[in-house]
Design a protein around this nucleic acid. Structure first.
Length: 495
RNA sequence: GUCCCCAUCGUCUAGCCCGGUCUAGGACACCACCCUUUCACGGUGAGAACCGGGGUUCGAAUCCCCGUGGGGACGCCA
């Protein structure tokens, strides 16, 4: 942490004093181990906002040498689904956000504070509710159990909800947020903690589990900031000092108003996985939405991010999602992907395109050939997504010839003559390396006082049907003598 | 409506805490040029911001207040 000067922004100091960062790091080697949790509910697709919340918790745990807990908040029986639950596991795993405690850890699943699915923790909640009732802090009404706030009660008509409600006069809740500083909020209505059907409510189970699982830092979206006053009152009701809170900014949708939701374009993690995005690129991008290392670095290995990440470095303002920047980040990672991984990634992507004849042909092709084609394309494509379209003509003879390109290429010079010359020279040409091919073509051109360029466009057109692609020499080398010969002949014959 | 949070290029952000070094830095996107006889990558350059108004101060992007704008929360959802 050589950049000790970078500490807080905004606020009057207070919660974000200069000691924070230092203290935190020392804690990791001392008595108070950091314990953070990610607590999703399996009620919908896993989206980018959830992923970032998980990521920030994970980063903080790794930065401090603490524990990252995964807890499944499945108290909403109506909306839970096993498919969504599996999606949470899969997405976190894909992103590389491994959890130390939670379901599916080790052989048996767990840690010392399980079970980690709230649907299996009813006994715990019953105990804690009883404690509140014994202390006179909970009561029954309309079949539900309510948490009782301390203070003088009075009735008032709520215009917004169009009904009379009972309010409680009490001191405001003070939250010392690690990102926002001091926040005060009045909590002035009793609230339900157990539904009339006997099921506990989010606020209750969330707090109870954070107590029971010894969570030290709650890092969550800012949309929870207004719940925090309820939670703090609950901690007080249990006689427990609340953990540290850190409310991170929200991700806003790319276009239009509001925060990103599951329905928005680009919101689903699953989608990126399917489209062949690299998880490390997505993670890197997500880190930069609301956090930065304090200097100009953007593309960074995850170990560097872990080392540099800290709560005081998290921004306070919401960030708008930008798919262009994500795509750029992804390309940067793609470009330096080791050959084996790149080829494997490509194979996986093609494998998912079960409806595409070209994709199937690519998979059926010789493995060495497939590899050569992919390596030739790696430095050229903008994303894995366009790879199948970009390489299609390597795997089928039925590739389309772009009529506009054809018209343009055939318009000047005598392209057919050039093609015939290449065709004539081809049987004896050295095709073992790009360099040799380039030499041969240049020699051919020199004989007629022409340039390499006089051959390139038309050969490319004949071989691929387009005017974009890998270098022409590489294309000839990879396609091989037979294919090249056949394609040039066919092109000449077709007129 | 009530409460809470936030406010630097179109977007992500540095700078703000500890006011002068800011004619406000970087990245994405956009445009131009160079590299390359394709397309990309890469390189160079251009345009592009301190929300408004008051205050404090010799001096404010930086501190304070008010407006405005954006966001969130107001469920027997999580």
């Amino acid at each position: 942490m050589q950049d000790g000067g970078r500490v807080t922004k905004g606020g009057e100091g207070g919660a974000r004093s200069s000691c924070q960062r230092g203290c935190e790091v020392h804690q990791s080697s001392g008595m108070s181990q950091v314990r953070v949790r990610f607590a999703p509910s399996p009620t919908g697709f896993f989206h980018i906002g959830s992923a970032r919340t998980a990521l920030f918790n994970w980063l903080y745990a790794r930065h401090t040498g603490g524990t990252f807990i995964l807890r499944i908040e499945d108290t909403d029986k109506e909306r839970n689904s096993e498919a969504f639950l599996n999606l949470i596991y899969d997405s976190l795993t894909w992103l590389g956000l491994n959890w130390d405690e939670g379901p599916r850890v080790g052989k048996h699943g767990g840690g010392d504070f399980g079970p980690y699915r709230q649907s299996e923790r009813s006994d715990v909640y019953r105990d804690y509710v009883q404690r509140l009732r014994d202390a006179g802090r909970a009561y029954e009404k309309d079949g539900a159990i309510w948490f009782k706030l301390e203070g003088e009660r009075y009735e008032v008509f709520d215009e917004h909800r169009k009904k009379t409600v009972t309010k409680v006069k009490g001191p405001p809740v003070v939250i010392e947020d690690r990102i926002r500083g001091r926040v005060e909020r009045v909590e002035d209505e009793d609230f339900v903690i157990v539904r009339s059907d006997g099921n506990p409510v989010f606020h209750l189970v969330n707090v109870v589990d954070d107590i029971a699982m010894r969570v030290t830092h709650i890092i969550r979206g800012e949309d929870h900031l207004s719940n925090t006053s309820k939670h703090v009152r609950l901690y007080e009701g249990f006689g427990v000092t609340p953990p540290a809170f850190a409310h991170i900014p929200l991700i806003l949708k790319q276009n239009g108003p509001g925060k990103m939701s599951k329905r928005d374009q680009g919101a689903l993690i699953e989608e990126y996985q399917r489209r062949g995005y690299l998880p490390e690129a997505l993670v890197n991008f997500l880190c930069l939405l609301g956090w930065n290392p304090g200097d100009d670095r953007e593309k960074m290995p995850i170990d560097d991010i872990i080392r540099l990440f800290d709560l005081p470095g998290v921004n306070q303002s919401n960030a708008r999602f930008d798919d262009k920047k994500l795509a750029h980040m992804n390309m940067a990672y793609l470009l330096e992907l080791p050959a084996d991984r790149w080829v494997a990634q490509a194979r996986e992507l093609f494998g998912r395109q079960t409806g595409s004849a070209v994709a199937q042909a690519a998979l059926a092709a010789d493995a060495g050939y497939f590899r050569e084609v992919m390596l030739l394309s790696q430095p050229k494509v903008k994303g894995l997504e366009e790879l199948s379209a970009y390489t299609a003509y390597f795997f089928t003879e039925a590739y389309a010839v772009d009529p506009k390109v054809r018209e343009k290429v055939m318009a000047k010079g005598d392209p057919k003559a050039r093609l015939q010359e290449v065709l004539d020279a081809l049987p004896t040409m050295d095709l073992t390396s790009d360099g040799a091919i380039e030499e041969a073509l240049k020699a051919l051109a020199a004989q007629r006082g022409l340039g390499f360029g006089d051959y390139q466009a038309v050969v490319r057109l004949a071989l691929s049907g387009t005017n974009v692609g890998p270098s022409i020499t590489g294309m000839i080398r990879v396609l091989g003598r037979e294919r090249v010969l056949a394609r040039l002949q066919r092109f000449l014959a077709d007129g």
